[in-house]
Design a protein around this nucleic acid. Structure first.
Length: 123
RNA sequence: UAUGGUGGUCGGAUAGCUGCGCUAAGAAAACUUAGUGAGGAAAGUCCGAGCGUUAUGGAAACGAGGUACCGGAUAACGUCCGGCUAGAGAAAUCUAAGGGAAAGUGCCACAGAAAGUUACCGCCAAGCAUUGCUUGGUAAGGUUGAAAAGGCGAGGUAAGAGCUCACCGCAAAGAUAGCAAUAUCCUUUGGCAAGGUAAACCCUACCUGACGCAAGACCAAAUUAGGAGAGCAGCAAAGCUGUUAAAAGGAGCGUUUCCACUCUACUCCAGAGGUAGGUCGCUUGAACCAAAUGGUGACAUUUGGUCUAGAUGAAUAGCUAUCGCUUGGAAUCUUUACUGCAAAGUAAAGCAAAUGACAAGAACAGAACUCGGCUUACAGACCACCUGCAAAA
RNA sequence: GGAGAUGUGGCAGAGCUGGUUUAAUGCACCUGACUUGAAAUCAGACGAGGGCGCAAGUCCUCCUGGGGUUCGAAUCCCUACAUCUCCG
C-alpha cells in the first residue's frame, strides 16, 4: 500500500527543480527520480509570495493537495517525486479545470521518465 | 417620518463524499476509535505590560528618547472615562500634540521706512536758508506684507499720543462656586505690557537601562583533538627559551564617577565543544461566562460556573447538492390613460400591495510566546437609544 | 516571527539646517548642422494632467497616497501603501 509523504526540506525542493517541469494555465508541475527505495509517493507543494497574500497562498496549497490526493494514486509513476507549484489562478479557477490540467501535466511529464529509462537500458 | 448621530451584535446554514493537525485510549507497527481545532480585525508592528537573557544591588551626573488643559480608571500606557476651554453643526453629537514666547538663543524669504528698541512719506516746532536743507517732537493718516505698538467717540495738544474720560475688549489681584482645569450680568486695580514660531533649539514637570521567543534553557549525530589555557621578559615575527604562583591587575547593562558584591587569575578534563537535528519555552490566563453590589462612567469587589487551537514547507480543509441572502430580470400581476355596450385590446408606469423562470454576486482577511490598547481594511444584515432643520400631513 | 532603510520627470540622481519658481546634473526622446547615408560630435529644444484661448500664450494641480503644524512644506510631525535589506 502506497502512502503520500510531503516534502519539508528545502534541499529536496531544489533537487527536484533541477529536473523536468510542465507548465499549464492553472499550475506548474516538477518531477524527478526519487532517491528513496520505498513504495511511498513523495510530493511537495509550493506557493510563492508572488501570487497573493497568506489567505490566497494557503487556499492554493489546499486545493493542490486535494487534487493530488485524487489524481496521483491513479497516474503517478513509482520512484518519481512530484512538486506542485501554484499560479495566480490556482485559488480561483473551477476545480474541474484544475483537475484536467493536473492530469495533462502528469501524463506529459511521465513521458520523460519512460523515454529516459528506455535510453539508459539501451546504452 | 426621510436624513443624521452614538453604542453594540453578526460575518451564511444543512447534508453527503474525500481528507489534515493536536490530545487521550488501544496496538509491535500500519492504523482504529473518541474529543477538539482560526478573527473582529488573527493584519500593520505604532505604544504599554508580562516572560527571558544580559552575573547582582544601590547612588549621582551627563547623554538619548518619549509624554504634556484638569481630575480619575488601570499591572501599565501615547489607552479609556468624566469634566474644562476652543472650533464645527439646526440639534443629537463630533473634532483638537490643548504646558511655557515678561529665562535665554535662533529664524521670519520677497516686499516694506521698520520683522524688533524701527521715522520713508506725512504732520508740527526751531534754526539756516529761500521754498529746500538740518535738528528735534510725533504712531492720528499713507505704502508693504501672512503678521506693523487694543477698538470707537469726546476732551486735550505746536502736532500727536490711554495723555485724560465714557463704553467695549484685555491683563492682574480678590471674592464666590469647584478637589482641579476653569467659570462669573461680582468687586478692585492697571492704562494696555510694543508680534509670530517651541510638530526650531530650549525651559518646566513626569516617565524610560539594553535587547528580544530567531529571547533563552536542555539533549545531542557528524566533525576536530590529546591536550586546553593566563601574565611577564628576551629575539624583527612565527615560534622557541626563561620566569612568576600572589600581588598588582582584568571583567561585569549608552558614557563617567562612587560604594558594596561576584567571577577569573594556573589550574582543569577524561572528555571538550555545542553545528545538523530534536525537546522544552507553548498555553490556567491582569482568562472567559453569568448574577449581585458600589460608582455619572472607565472600572472595582464578591459569589457561582467553564477549560476553550497549539501548527513549524506551517493543520483548522477540498468538492457536490439543497435552502437562505443581495442585485438584475422575461413574464404574471397591479395601477393609470385611451378605444369599446360588454368581453377584451393598446400604451405607459412599477410610486402603493404580491409572485417570479433564469443569470450574476457573496467583503476584509489566516493564530505563530501571551495579554491591554491604538491604527488601518471590511460585501452586507440586524438591534437599542438620541436628534427633529427644510418639506409634507 | 522580529529589526531596519528607501520612495523626486521616461530612467538614474542632487536638493531634506522650511522661503518665489519643475526642481541641479547625466542618459534617453525631439529638431537642426556636419555626412552620399548612419554613428560619434556640435547647437537648440524638452515633464505630466486639467482650465481658458483661433494661435502665441497664460493660469491651476502634482516630489508614493491621506491628514496636520506654519504666513509658507519635496523638506517638520502623524498615518497608510509600495519596494528593498538584515537576523536561524
Amino acid at each position: 500500500m502506497t502512502k503520500i509523504i510531503v516534502f519539508k526540506k528545502r534541499k529536496d525542493f531544489l533537487r527536484v527543480a533541477q529536473a523536468f517541469y510542465v507548465a499549464t494555465h492553472n499550475m506548474v508541475l516538477q518531477a524527478a527520480l526519487s532517491l528513496s527505495e520505498t513504495d511511498n509517493l513523495f510530493v511537495g507543494y509550493t506557493a510563492t509570495k508572488k501570487i497573493g497574500n497568506a489567505v490566497c497562498r494557503n487556499r492554493s496549497k489546499r486545493r493542490l493537495r486535494a487534487v493530488a490526493h485524487e489524481v496521483l494514486p491513479v497516474y503517478a509513476l513509482p520512484n518519481v517525486d512530484y512538486i506542485f507549484i501554484a499560479r495566480n489562478s490556482t485559488a480561483s479557477c473551477p476545480y474541474s479545470e484544475l483537475k484536467k490540467d493536473t492530469i495533462y501535466a502528469i501524463k506529459r511529464i511521465n513521458k520523460n521518465f519512460i523515454q529516459d529509462t528506455v535510453e539508459t537500458t539501451t546504452d
